[in-house]
Write a protein that binds this DNA or RNA. Sequence first.
DNA 1: GCGGCGACGTCCGAAAACGGCGAGACTGCC
DNA 2: GGCAGTCTCGCCGTTTTCGGACGTCGCCGC
Lengths: 165, 165
Amino acid sequence: MTRLVQRILPSPLGPLRLVASDLALVGIYFPEHRPAPAHAGDDVARHPLLDHAARELDEYFIGRRRQFTVALDPRGTAFQRAVWRALADIRFGEQRSYADLARAIGNPRAVRAVGAANGRNPLSIVLPCHRVVATGGALTGYAGGLPAKKWLLAHEAGQMPGLSA
Amino acid sequence: MTRLVQRILPSPLGPLRLVASDLALVGIYFPEHRPAPAHAGDDVARHPLLDHAARELDEYFIGRRRQFTVALDPRGTAFQRAVWRALADIRFGEQRSYADLARAIGNPRAVRAVGAANGRNPLSIVLPCHRVVATGGALTGYAGGLPAKKWLLAHEAGQMPGLSA
DNA sequence: GCGGCGACGTCCGAAAACGGCGAGACTGCC
DNA sequence: GGCAGTCTCGCCGTTTTCGGACGTCGCCGC
């Protein structure tokens, strides 16, 4: 396993922790991430991948970016990677249900398992698990807390979101 | 799944239960088989496959047969079938270790898994899992009980085995 | 009727437990 | 010092257990 590096990036949702390998970004974690993040690394100042990711996230937060180009390497089981791959198809501002996602990966009954895989998404924001909601539209959970999910959806709806619930 | 049929065959090791499908023999079980057998069927009197299997087993027990020709269909996972296939290469009177078997299937470190697969062998005696012993030569386990294993090995060594431990 | 809320059913994948082992370290005895 | 017997731990496929970022149905209040 190649060594991992990391950096803290200030953001409207609090300080995000970016983690990268030599080849790709492997993690973006909220301050109080649930469940606890899988990856950690040594802090570094300059690093091409972390620079790239930080720049794109900054642009996203100020409303100047709707998709990301930084190389990603989300690590997990085959099933989890399938779910996370499907996440990448949900565009800025759109929303899908967990059932939609289950159908998308060809396993329509694996609804709850999709929820679990979603909860283990290591690349918050870039892989937009915040765009997945219950069939009725309810916000049922988020690794960074429901207020953060609400903030992100409002942000993508073009509203000026406040962090108050 | 085609219907299964079965018959009880008296033997020096107690009444064996033979189970067959339309096409092949799928199980041979000891009275107190551990773990519990996977297959059961309806009892029948005349049946070509069961007749064939019973005849060959009788011959084996009286010392007139060293290999079997009845069609077999051992049902299990890919790994288990690989192990059981390797069993067929151990000839009458020979012995191999679990480590030998692991090497034979090209997975030299899967020693314990080989042991587990051995324990699930559905075709006792015909697929000679009794010829597999620990590296040091110790008899470590048998679905029909260790005395039965000991009996079979003594039988194949040309000795007159008693069932006393 | 109709909408909202709460409980339950179901169905997955993940994680942990489990052996029919074997190699290597560790201990008491000679 | 050896040497045999014990113990510990790594391995690996299977089985079992567990828990959930859902969805649905029924009940209740309007």
